[in-house]
Design a protein around this nucleic acid. Sequence first.
DNA 1: GTCTATAAGGAGATAGAC
DNA 2: GTCTATCTCCTTATAGAC
Lengths: 206, 206
Amino acid sequence: MERNQNIEKRILWVAERLFLEKGFNGTSTTEIAKTVGCNQALIHYYFRTKEKLFWDVFAPKVEQFVEYLDAPLDESLDFIERIKNVIDFYFGILELDERLTPFIVNELLMNPGRWDKFRDRYLRNESRSSAFDRFESMVEEEISAGRIRSIRAIDLLMNIMSLIISVFIVAPKGFANGECDSNLRKDYLDKRREDIKLLIVNGIRE
Amino acid sequence: MERNQNIEKRILWVAERLFLEKGFNGTSTTEIAKTVGCNQALIHYYFRTKEKLFWDVFAPKVEQFVEYLDAPLDESLDFIERIKNVIDFYFGILELDERLTPFIVNELLMNPGRWDKFRDRYLRNESRSSAFDRFESMVEEEISAGRIRSIRAIDLLMNIMSLIISVFIVAPKGFANGECDSNLRKDYLDKRREDIKLLIVNGIRE
DNA sequence: GTCTATAAGGAGATAGAC
DNA sequence: GTCTATCTCCTTATAGAC
């Protein structure tokens, strides 16, 4: 009886795991059903289409990034510390689940339709804009004050995100360590994080 | 008669275009055949399997990266100029065809089997190792001489590649410019290239 | 070499019984 | 709400005629 409670949630749960591990195309509704322990028609009863199931799984994963800039941009700190906070913040999110970055890159960046939907849903709302606007004025203020070199806020953010995302794309490939020892992996991630902070902070010096 | 000459090459040609534009999974052998103007069985006559066709298309694309470090590392220049050359070199390759980066990331980094095959074929041969070894001793010499800060060669290379690859993943999304104006795009790429040089060169200063 | 025909299987989605 | 059965479509690959 317990297995049969909340089948809808269990489908979401299983779908999340399989999508993360094998991607959208690599996961069939039949396999999801088999893993849940129900039949394939039930997936469609609850979610109508596989694509809608995908977004029901995907939206919560993505929404944690939407207000991405508000949390780490603590105004009581100086700008360099805020930048380091931003790097720590994103590293923290992505480190929680190493399957997340390849999943996002693959399903979002590599799929035009999904990208458009994502942009319309999440990159055009007010909370994101205002957070970025705050960040942008911070950058401009630092440049005016002569504390960092001239750089556009969007480029600075792009540099930061590029460096972080690449770490989590390459890390699962065992590029860092021949073996998959989790201590070595943690060391590698920490090392990369500090190196990225150093590069960014050094790189925007006047 | 001319259309029928070198069908094998024309299959390779069409397959390359379709794989680049729609990915491996998004391209069927039926569609390749239809575009070539032959029947689908002929694809298998020449290439046996779709996977083998993929590698026949993919190998030449990838091989230009294998000796990637030898060309730009001109020993007559100082180290900073060599670094800038490396950045220009990769930018140049990727700029030649903007479909190339998403293709490589998607098919190679995101597919475990392909990655393993790629690593065994291309990352374990001598030419690659010796080029990297040269780069590594250059970096160590610069550090010893106190001309740059301490950094591992592999991390420096990873930083450079991360920044460049990200540009070409994001660029096709129109992140840079609302419209797809090719002059704006060129401006954006040039701007990013110079910004990356500045970031890297600044970021490894002592 | 090039073709037609087809095998053999997997996919997502739906109809309708219970 | 959950099931079985099935529809429709598309895929890669092969057999065999010409």
